[in-house]
Computed example of a mutant assay.
Amino acid sequence: MKQIEKSKEPASLLAHRKKIHSNYDNYPEKDELRDYLLKEQGQICCYCMQRISKENMKVEHWQPQSKYPEKQLDYQNLLAACRGNEGEPKHLQHCDTHKSEQEMILNPLDKLIKSIKYRKDGRIYSDDPNIDQDLNKILNLNTQTLVNNRAAIMDDVIQNLTNLKGNKADWAVAHVKRKIQQYETKTAGKYHPYCQVIIYFLNKRFAQELGYF
């Protein structure tokens, strides 16, 4: 999960919110809202970080509409999420589709996401039991497909860095820094899918060389 920095909300959302009897269902400019959310998130899901587009996303209310109707038009509460295997059995669903109307502590806008960790086999976890429950029980982010995707992207980056110097040579810190920067920044308005996995892995492996200790 990558921390999201919210941008200025769409003017149409602000205008609609000021109307009498306005709600999310009767908001007419949802396409504009999707564009705003996709742009600020670099076209990756707010939870699993897979690639999303206007055609295969949903607008997520972090605080559920059913419990917090006053937040249904609050831009700070709106995120772009993948469809999370919508229509599949519950144990195969993930992200907002699995979360449904459940509440959770972990918010992609907060610094709490810095407590999220990744194992080399692609599993996501946290040492904080409450956050770990959000990741596993509410968002179901350790479905096998997501685990495999995260492991594959780590393997690709490892192989790429190894190819630069050869199997028996150490990775150059300069190459590692460039790779981190590559995954921290958008290219043509897009983040790399699962970008935070790579950032975490490289920062952890090279903490001392990168000056973190």
Results as ranks from 00 to 15, higher is better:
D25K: 14
N167Y: 02
L161Y: 01
I113E: 02
N23L: 09
M57K: 10
E9T: 07
L38R: 01
F201Y: 14
G166N: 11
Q159K: 02
E5P: 09
R119H: 10
Q208M: 03
I44N: 05
N26A: 07
H175G: 05
P129M: 11
N160F: 12
L109D: 04
I4K: 00
F201Q: 09
Q3E: 11
A15G: 03
E55Q: 14
G84C: 05
N107M: 13
E86R: 15
V176F: 00
K204P: 01
P129A: 10
G87H: 12
R17I: 02
N85L: 04
L202P: 02
K8F: 14
V59Q: 11
L210F: 00
L161F: 00
Q41R: 13
A174G: 12
K6M: 13
K90Y: 12
R150S: 02
D128M: 03
R123H: 05
K18P: 03
F206A: 00
V173G: 04
L135F: 05
K30W: 11
D25R: 13
N149I: 02
K6Y: 15
D31E: 08
Q72W: 01
H21D: 13
P64M: 12
L92W: 13
S12L: 00
N77I: 08
K39G: 01
L106Y: 00
K186W: 01
G166R: 13
